[in-house]
Design a protein around this nucleic acid. Structure first.
Lengths: 118, 118
DNA sequence: GGCACCTGCTAAAGTCTCTTGGCATGTGCG
DNA sequence: CGCACATGCCAAGAGACTTTAGCAGGTGCC
């Protein structure tokens, strides 16, 4: 298990990457074995352009990895495969990741006595 | 562990619910203890309306639960709390969930020989 | 009644995501 | 060269999600 507790931002990104039927299917298809884009698109019944977008998102968060290879015919085939990952989703783990969230940081958890909300 | 292998659709919904900095913070805040909407909104530094929307999404997928109570003053307070959940994210589990995905079902995984895409 | 506090709803604008379709490049082959 | 197959990228429309702002109802208290 390479991953256990990703940073808040990363966790959100990973979750977002997985929160898609298409991408779930892509990962599932790759679990069955590595494959190259065009072939995978045919098997999944979606367009190459669409599959590429989804593959990029999955690769961007490290859930899959690509490997450009040359077939015996000399054709360039871009193989994708699943990166063995293992994340656990529990309230505590999420709370832990939350503190490392960047962006808006409003969870002061500091009871403001002088609440002058305007 | 109440949950182990949610259906594909449910998994996607849960992942989508968690794939948001705001909602991650909401869950995190609730891990620290139950709280009611207005108070939680103040602590998180976001508007009540916004918080309500996020709380609904979390509740819709069963990650948090609400409980309308009356304070000693007679005010109606809607308390939210985290529902103890535990999901594991691994390629295999995802592949398993993928087969139960409804909607577009194009993962025929059947090598079509007569591919005449026009 | 007026103030402070709670809840709930909805309309509207802005933003991000998804998906399609087209176009360009490169290779092997007859 | 023209065909079949692979990769890559971009613009544009449709659709979903996010966030704000405003309004309405209810309770306790002075």
């Amino acid at each position: 298990m390479t991953d256990s507790s990703p940073s808040g931002d990363e966790l959100v990104r990973i979750l977002a990457a997985l929160a898609s039927p298409h991408r779930i299917r892509v990962v599932a298809a790759l679990v069955g074995g590595r494959n190259y884009v065009s072939q995978l698109a045919r098997e999944l019944g979606i367009s190459r352009a669409l599959l590429q977008v989804h593959l990029r998102k999955l690769e961007a968060v490290g859930l899959v990895s690509s490997d450009l290879e040359l077939s015996e015919d000399g054709k360039a085939l871009k193989f994708y495969e699943v990166v063995p990952f293992g994340f656990q989703l529990t309230p505590q783990l999420i709370a832990d990741a939350a503190v490392t969230l960047t962006g808006l940081d409003a969870q002061d958890v500091t009871p403001r006595r002088e609440s002058s909300h305007g």
